[in-house]
Design a protein around this nucleic acid. Structure first.
Lengths: 144, 144
DNA sequence: CTTGACTCCGTACCATACTACGTGTATTAT
DNA sequence: ATAATACACGTAGTATGGTACGGAGTCAAG
């Protein structure tokens, strides 16, 4: 079971040392053990947690939302139904994202296709094909 | 073919009027036609463009990246190969996002499952199961 | 036992993406 | 026609998510 100082941890994950401390302040990371020297000591679990944060951030989750994701757990305190509802909500959100990304994906594929087939086409911005103003993207009312 | 003033447009999309002007400054939106009164006049196309921006933002694209997405088009000026490369890069990015979201999705489903089956489980944060430190998320080197 | 790299902490600064404010003109509802 | 909205513009302020800085303590190598 390997342990790291903050520098090694930050390096493994590919983020800044200051960012680790920042996340700790925001309670995205638990307060780590300390050496007698007060140096922070991190575990494999902390590393995974940080990797998750990094990834989720790139997927468009805010730090606040990431905190909520971490909080989704079934423990004896929380009522199972509550967790289920929250989780279903998040799931719905994630599904919408996947769907929207797939729309964008299909347009990109089409664009690459056009390149291959040398069909020089419209002045219209092709990415906008993704949007049918009637059936369009996740309209209104999600959490964010 | 309907036309809007900035307020109606912003309202349709669900964003602030100031934000529309802000996007115009950043050249995410083209300079609109004006009435004699200098009032901006927007079209259906502008509305779709704004909806796209809103959606892409929620998917974790920065405004800069969204601008790049808009720029992906085959016109007589641009060399097709360039566009193809750029687009393939974006496609790769999008694919990674979809894959990572699917991982998160599967964990959420598992969590909901546990609720249904009343298996009160570990103190460990279940969302972290998503991360296998070996096979994990999109590590390193994408554009962002 | 000193030198260089790492860590501590608090605070200050930075970029991105808005959002609000103030002053003036235009439009619209009564 | 006049008051309430809406818009124009420039500029300033805010929230989020970091990033940098400075002075002091720690550690490992030579």
């Amino acid at each position: 079971m390997s342990e790291y100082f903050v520098g090694q941890l930050a390096n493994q994950v590919g983020i800044n040392v200051e960012t680790v401390r920042y996340y700790e302040r925001l309670k995205l990371l638990p307060k780590p053990k300390r050496k007698e020297s007060r140096y922070r000591i991190y575990s494999e679990t902390d590393l995974r947690r940080l990797l998750f944060i990094k990834c989720a951030k790139e997927l468009g989750f805010t730090l606040k939302e990431i905190k909520e994701l971490f909080a989704l757990r079934i423990d004896s305190e929380a009522k199972c139904g509550d967790v289920k509802h929250l989780t279903e909500h998040k799931l719905n959100d994630v599904d919408n994202r996947i769907r929207d990304l797939k729309k964008i994906r299909s347009v990109l594929v089409k664009l690459i296709d056009q390149c291959v087939n040398e069909e020089v086409s419209s002045d219209e911005c092709p990415i906008l094909e993704v949007i049918d103003p009637k059936i369009s993207f996740t309209k209104g009312g999600d959490t964010r």
